[in-house]
Design a protein around this nucleic acid. Structure first.
Lengths: 342, 342
DNA sequence: CCTTTCTAGGAATACGTTTTCCTTCGTAAG
DNA sequence: CTTACGAAGGAAAACGTATTCCTAGAAAGG
């Protein structure tokens, strides 16, 4: 145990070379499997490295290679519910390639964003993932940055930059098809504010599937409101009033679905027997806490992060991709649509 | 815009020096305010740096200085609800000192943990914060690591290592004092499994405050169960049955409180008029989604992160701290205890 | 005019690697 | 016996910066 405050010297390749009785160049070759060396020499160096607990200094290596095996993940929403899984998916995919991730939380402050950008440039990050909580296009982060950038769960106003997005329309379609397959015939759709692209896309997918099935549900029947439980509680009463005989409700978020579920129980409506309920986000504490648990659409955020990482790795390799790219959603069935499933 | 795949050369201090017509050493001194230079020379160098958009290579600097201005935050719970705010608090405090943070998510896998440890050592991180979701002591991460470590929201079995923890007992006490100040007289406490230290501490703080106020609520009256809404729904009926006239319930988590709130509404009990309700965690989507919104105890997780960062900075400076250190909780009053507050 | 002192800035070294080029030695071919 | 060649490993350069030491010139004092 080193004394507190001591500048302890870590073991370098020089120590390893000395112990193995070879030059540093040879030691380097032995450890990296390069050059022409006798097997016995390689083993001797490897043994020395193990004995000393040698870990190569990544800074020195990066300085020479012009790469740091480091990327920044920059998010505008304090690593909230949406960017966390995206980030973890990315980190996982990058970690497999020995790439480490710098956390940057801008708190939606352009000044902080600029600061992080300078930092990442100073640290010579190999690339950059910009994560968001809304899929609306945002200002490009720095067109002439000189570093590859991939957007995830958001996109740049410069539509040529690569962006990985959830397939919101496909998600709405999945919900529709699931409810139709259950034999439901009178539908409601309660969702968030219409200014959100995601809300509009989900509604469009849902309506398209309805039209294809010959059901009389159109864009005019969509109830836009807030992303809150309170709105769900309120809108449920609205739907019951305007759509007699309704037997299925698709909600634009799990929180809305929770509110709807609450109201239905209060007015004595059974879920799923009388009304089947589908949420969106598959947000564990929400869907599992509900009674019955909610069937929900999962955007597979980790996949979005993983795909973003893959695109970034390609760009770093010099084969950049362009424009938006969607990742499919997945429906997770639970008690709110089928009594058997828990 | 560089051609795709081009190994673009960033501007170095050499370029700046050339443009300013000075040597590299002089340029360095000018930019860092060192050495003896004419003011005119400093200005000329600064102008050149600005013109070229020069950002010093932190790797090179770190290689020389033996410090990287980098720390790792390692968490066992996939940056869940608890470690995220801790991490953000730490990142904020560290970022002010120009220190960047590597994200490491071990997924509770010792092998992954070891891998991250090797990585951080290779990258010569200046220090390490270990964050958890339970305050139970965990195995020390590497006693002879040679790098300062601070635990946050968890602690090491080696009780000498510095750990920053929430004051769970104090939180329980806050809840009790709040309910007593409201004039409530018959109490219930519903919480998670007794194997959780946090559950026991919160209960202890609550009971202690009750005893001091001369109320007949003892450790035997605590209802231990699960950390789930379902348990809250179930336990609420239990309390109503075993404790006639109960007018206040303190819950060990917001999720439990949500369940309790649900049941009370179903059986026609008004919150807060008939029963005042206090949760724990102050988890926004839970407390704000409830009807009425929940009064809750906030562990101030960001403060925990900030304090952990401060301790780590001290340790890096060579003045390590020792043992556990608690951060006080805060009560946030809402509609579930006082009708006026929204 | 000569010597000392101070100032401004240049040259060189170090940090820890990787890689390129070079040297040495042994062996086989002519 | 001489030449060519392959194998094994050493020496040195390079990456970008900070710092220490040194030098050239100017100013000041005798």
């Amino acid at each position: 145990m080193p004394a507190p405050g001591s500048k302890l010297k870590r073991t370098t390749i020089r120590d390893v070379a000395a112990l193995a009785g070879v030059s540093i160049g040879t030691a380097s070759k032995a450890l990296n499997g390069q050059g022409k060396l006798r097997a016995e020499t390689r083993d001797r160096v490897a043994a020395a490295a193990r004995e000393l607990g040698f870990a190569p200094n990544v800074l020195a290596r990066g300085l020479l290679a012009g790469r740091t095996y480091t990327v920044g993940v920059i998010t505008t929403d304090s690593f909230g519910r949406f960017s966390i899984p995206v980030m973890l998916g990315a980190e996982n995919a990058l970690g497999a390639g020995q790439i480490s991730v710098f956390m940057c939380d801008t708190r939606d402050d352009p000044e902080r964003e600029q600061q992080y950008l300078d930092m990442l440039l100073s640290r010579r990050a190999d690339g950059l993932i910009v994560a968001g909580r809304r899929i609306e296009p945002r200002p490009s982060i720095g067109p002439t940055l000189g570093v590859p950038v991939v957007y995830a769960m958001t996109q740049s106003m410069d539509s040529d930059e690569p962006a990985i997005l959830p397939d919101d329309a496909g998600g709405g379609r999945l919900a529709a098809e699931h409810l139709l397959a259950l034999g439901r015939r009178r539908f409601g759709h309660i969702t968030g504010p219409p200014r959100f692209l995601a809300a509009r896309m989900r509604a469009r997918g849902f309506c398209d599937a309805m039209a294809e099935a010959g059901m009389p549900f159109t864009a005019n029947d969509v109830l836009y409101g807030e992303w809150s439980e309170a709105w769900g509680r309120e809108a449920a009463r609205l739907v019951m009033h305007t759509t007699p005989g309704v037997d299925a409700i698709f909600c634009g978020s799990d929180q809305i679905a929770r509110g709807v579920s609450d109201t239905l129980r209060l007015i004595g409506c059974r879920v799923p027997e009388d009304i089947a309920l589908v949420g969106f986000d598959n947000w564990s504490p929400m869907v599992l806490g509900a009674d019955p648990p909610l069937t929900s659409i999962d955007m597979c955020l980790e996949d979005i992060g993983r795909v973003a990482a893959e695109h970034l790795l390609l760009a770093i390799k010099g084969e950049p991709t362009h424009g938006p790219h969607t990742v499919p959603c997945r429906l997770v069935a639970r008690g709110s649509t089928s009594p058997e499933t828990p």
